[in-house]
Amino acid sequence: MNLSDIVAQQLVNGLVLGSFYALVALGYTMIFGVIKLLNFAHGDLYMVGGFVGFLALSAISGVVGGDWPGVFIAMLFAMIAVGCLGVVIERVAYHPMLAAPRLSILITALAVSLVLQNAVLGLTGGQYQAFRADLGFGGFDIGSLFIQHNQMVLVGTAALLMVALQLFVTRTQFGRAMRAVSIDKDMCQLMGINVPVVIAVTFFIGSALAAAAGTMAGAYYGSIWYFMGFLIGLKAFTAAVIGGIGSIPGAMLGGLVLGLLEAFGTQIPGIGSEWKDVFSFAVLILVLVLKPTGLLGKPEQERM
């Protein structure tokens, strides 16, 4: 393989990884937007999404098979189920804490994360679960570059979801309300916006996107386990910060940037793939030091 092949191959790998990060980072950033909470349980919603998708696929694969159509149906089911779970978590765990100091709700988020992880641990016994998707390994060559169909479908689906979200947020009354809530809640009430409903819908969408990523990741990598949300939660947080926390395009960009950085970073001589995570978090620290507001974030304005 020559250099350009390596670059092209890592570009594809980075896009796949980046799509997962971006989908999870979107939920992170949207929830941060509306209630200023770093939802540390968000990675676990991705994990639960993987499991719900797995269960759904197992139930229907006899009828529709384990290829992409089946995975999509399972993914849709996981999105709805986990979306509702996200709404329940907000109502039960976060809503009562909204008036409390910020640290309290942050600790609550950690608790929710532990509850979700341990619930799934208890149910599965901590075993890796083989994801019974049957995606095949077909693909095509471009020169010496090999692209799997799976990778294309995956990146395409993620892109579709992100475009849909962007349209929803900028072109609809409800999307505008969502952005307005992240700017000034009191004013929103005077505009007749039912703020708790907007927050609930935000949790639904954010959680559903994480679930979509979880199901696709399970199908793509072939296995799921109760702890799979931990690292991606941290990575998604990193992606959201790189892009500028609170910014939706920022989360998409941050996810892709992080995915590509990891893919290429591991190609630097002397840095093997085992250094991948170190690489990401070093980038997080750099961003926090050099541009704390992220690539697309705006500096916080103090009101006098």
Binding site: T172, Q173, R176, C188, M191, G192, I193
Partner: peptide, 10 residues
């Protein structure tokens, strides 16, 4: 436009 939120049905 955000002001019209309570007057919209969709």
């Amino acid at each position: 436009m955000s002001g019209m939120h309570c007057r919209t049905r969709a």
